[in-house]
Design a protein around this nucleic acid. Structure first.
Length: 280
DNA sequence: CACCAGGCAGTGC
DNA sequence: GCACTGCATGGT
């Protein structure tokens, strides 16, 4: 009798687990990778190749949407794609804010906030300023080949980088900013591990002391490299959608996970075609 | 040719 | 504090 009850309970949980994992929104590679968070990926005939990590620590993922086991079976990539966060609960909460927010959530429900290496994210978003995603990817690829041997350039390799080398790779006016940032990390002014723990405004302040890191780059580095989900980067697209959809409001209406809301809004604004012009 | 891109520093007020 | 401008580069 006891064993029968135990068996029934086990069966019940098994069915529930299956059911919940079935209804849970699946990670979308297409909506997550090209959404301006990371810059080292490619896609060919439905197969995605992703690189992450600095120097010798580089890892390469090859995966297709119809078989995500290379991600789910590998703790590194499971963490990279933030599989443990309950995005369905966050979207349900966000969707009560306004019809536009609900639309942004349902537009690309498989978006995740990536968990990238903090140095790679910080450096990548220094490159990103006043630049477009396609060109950012090209510059970073050339930096990886020139300094990293395939992995992302180490802090050390960029501390001693020559500015004319960086300009040749296409960095333009950002070349000294990259060296400044590497120097601040190398000298310990920026302690990347600490940025994950300390007060968020203190963390922003530390980053913004570097010439070349402003509020937007700091927020992106913290959100995508330190998993600070309360950071809310305001780029040109976010300014547009906030002005139109949430006039007079700021990030506080989205609560402590505003960074996640930001990513749904950013992706919606940039790809839906509804916010291209200054009109509306 | 102008204008833009996941901005920022410098200057002027 | 806020508004304005120059900045490297490649794409429309």
């Amino acid at each position: 009798m006891i064993t029968l009850i135990v068996f029934s309970v086990k069966l019940f949980y098994t069915l529930c687990m299956r059911n919940s994992s079935f209804t849970e929104t699946q990670l979308s590679l297409r909506d997550t990778l090209p959404s301006g968070q990371c810059f080292r990926f490619s896609e060919c005939d439905g197969t995605w190749t992703v690189k992450a990590g600095v120097g010798e620590g580089v890892r390469t993922l090859v995966v297709r949407q119809n078989d995500l086991s290379p991600i789910t079976d590998d703790p590194f990539w499971a963490a990279f794609f933030d599989l443990d966060t309950d995005y369905d609960a966050l979207k349900a909460s966000f969707s009560t804010i306004s019809p536009l927010m609900a639309e942004a959530c349902s537009y690309a429900p498989g978006i995740r906030i990536l968990n990238q290496d903090p140095w790679e994210a910080l450096c990548s978003f220094v490159v990103s300023q006043n630049n477009n995603i396609k060109r950012i990817m090209g510059i970073i690829e050339r930096m990886c080949n020139f300094y990293g041997g395939g992995g992302f350039p180490t802090v050390r390799s960029l501390v001693d980088a020559r500015e004319d080398d960086l300009r040749r790779l296409g960095l333009g006016f950002r070349a000294p900013y990259i060296v400044n940032t590497a120097r601040a990390v190398y000298d310990g002014l920026i302690q990347l591990d600490e940025l994950k723990k300390i007060d968020i405004d203190v963390a922003r302040g530390i980053l913004m002391k570097v010439k070349g890191i402003g509020p937007k780059v700091a927020d992106c580095a913290l959100l995508f490299g330190c998993h600070r989900l309360d950071c809310f980067p305001m780029d040109v697209w976010m300014k547009r959608i906030m002005a139109i959809g949430f006039p007079g409001q700021d990030k506080s209406i989205f609560g402590p996970y505003a960074g996640v809301a930001q990513q749904y809004l950013f992706h919606y604004a940039r790809t839906s075609g509804r916010f291209d012009g200054k009109s509306e």
